[in-house]
């Protein structure tokens, strides 16, 4: 790998995602920011398990040679599945909020405060 390129891109993605979550005033964009952070964490886990010139960790019909670590990939798969469930639920909340409030602006979606 060239230096630490994957890890640097992880940090950039995390910062982008957090920026969207803190400064974007649209509920959908907040969810998008969350998904960007999630992709960054997934990329981090996959690149942790990367072995130079490694192949997929499947023993059946394997051509031999180094394999990448299987555990981070299993973790990433689990995390992706959880991420899909989270995004689906958050976006359906957005639909309901738009239906009842008529807006997705975070400054207006605050009938609960104090």
């Amino acid at each position: 790998m060239i230096f630490n390129a994957p890890f640097i891109s992880v940090m950039i993605l995390v910062i982008f995602g957090l920026y969207a979550m803190v400064f974007r005033r649209n509920l959908i964009k907040v969810v998008i920011g969350l998904d960007i952070v999630e992709s960054a964490v997934n990329l981090f886990m996959v690149s942790l398990g990367y072995v130079k010139n490694g192949i997929a960790p499947i023993y059946t019909n394997s051509p031999g040679g180094a394999m990448v670590l299987p555990t981070p990939q299993a973790l990433t798969l689990t995390s992706i599945v959880i991420g899909v469930a989270t995004s689906a639920m958050l976006l359906s909340f957005c639909i309901l909020i738009y239906r009842y409030y008529g807006t997705l602006d975070t400054r207006k979606v605050r009938r609960l405060r104090e």
Partner: peptide
């Protein structure tokens, strides 16, 4: 002061956490 802090905006919730 407390009323000003408790804005109810989701961006602020995430901001406080960070």
């Amino acid at each position: 002061l407390m009323r000003d802090i408790h804005t109810g905006i989701i961006n602020d919730y995430v901001g406080w956490f960070l």
